[in-house]
């Protein structure tokens, strides 16, 4: 049984021994001094003056720099991006959800003239603890109000916090994933370093002029 095949096996592992590690050190990467100074774009001397602790640690290869996992913009993740101004409260998402974890309560809202606003939304709860991130709710939304998020570090120690309510959704970072949102891909929107501030940008069309809005909705010209 001692034979050349065993030696070939040894050869393969030896080749892999000299390869660069395929793994990513998440969330922090341990680095030595040269890499730390390159990361901070400072000379080593300045590094010792400005951040002495991490500079000394880096002499032993123990300094830490944050490391991100490369993600695709279509990543279906946590922290849904929801635009209240776009949501009509039609509850398509709640109907389409396989697990029924979205709860919506609406009441007849103001007569404020905005695109697609008819009902005011009193409750919009998503039970993230049971969500499986299939993205069907996003696919169902006819007004592009609900988007998948792109983050994934949202663990908590309290179960109650896993239910995202309307305030949380309103205050969360608007970093929507481009899952089922081709308009983001056409615009090459990158959710990892930019944010959507205006709810008009999230839609499938150009942002209308205020005058056309007035024409269309107030004066009923068209």
């Amino acid at each position: 049984m001692i034979g050349p095949g065993l030696l070939r096996g040894l050869k393969i592992t030896l080749i892999n021994f000299f390869r660069f590690p395929a793994t990513i050190q998440y969330p922090n990467r341990r680095v030595w001094l040269p890499e730390l100074s390159r990361y901070n774009s400072l000379t080593p001397l300045k590094l010792f003056l400005e951040t002495p602790k991490s500079a000394i640690l880096s002499l032993f290869g123990m300094a830490e720099i944050p490391m991100k996992i490369p993600q695709s913009p279509r990543f279906r993740g946590n922290e849904f991006a929801w635009f209240e101004d776009r949501c009509t409260g039609c509850a398509s998402c709640a109907k389409y959800c396989p697990l029924g974890i979205i709860e919506i309560v609406t009441s007849p809202g103001s007569t404020d003239i905005q695109e697609g606003e008819n009902y005011s939304i009193d409750v919009f709860d998503i039970d993230i603890g049971r969500c499986m991130f299939c993205g069907l709710c996003v696919e169902a939304c006819p007004y592009d109000a609900l988007h998948m998020g792109t983050s994934f570090e949202r663990s908590t120690t309290v179960r109650n916090k896993l239910v995202i309510n309307k305030d949380n959704l309103n205050n969360s970072d608007k970093k929507p994933s481009s899952w089922y949102r081709p308009q983001f891909e056409e615009r090459e929107f990158n959710p990892f370093d930019s944010e959507i501030e205006d709810h008009y940008e999230a839609g499938r069309h150009e942002k209308p002029e205020k005058r056309t809005m007035k024409d269309r909705w107030v004066d009923r010209n068209n």
């Binding site: 993600q71 913009p73 279509r74 990543f75 696919e139 899952w179």
Partner: peptide
């Protein structure tokens, strides 16, 4: 799995296909 993430945003639980094709064109 990275390719799957590009296609449909998930690595294992894909849900990529729909009746009549796929849900979205490849980027």
């Amino acid at each position: 799995l990275d390719l799957f993430e590009m296609l449909c945003g998930a690595r294992i639980t894909n849900s990529y296909l729909r009746p009549g094709g796929v849900y979205m064109d490849a980027p």
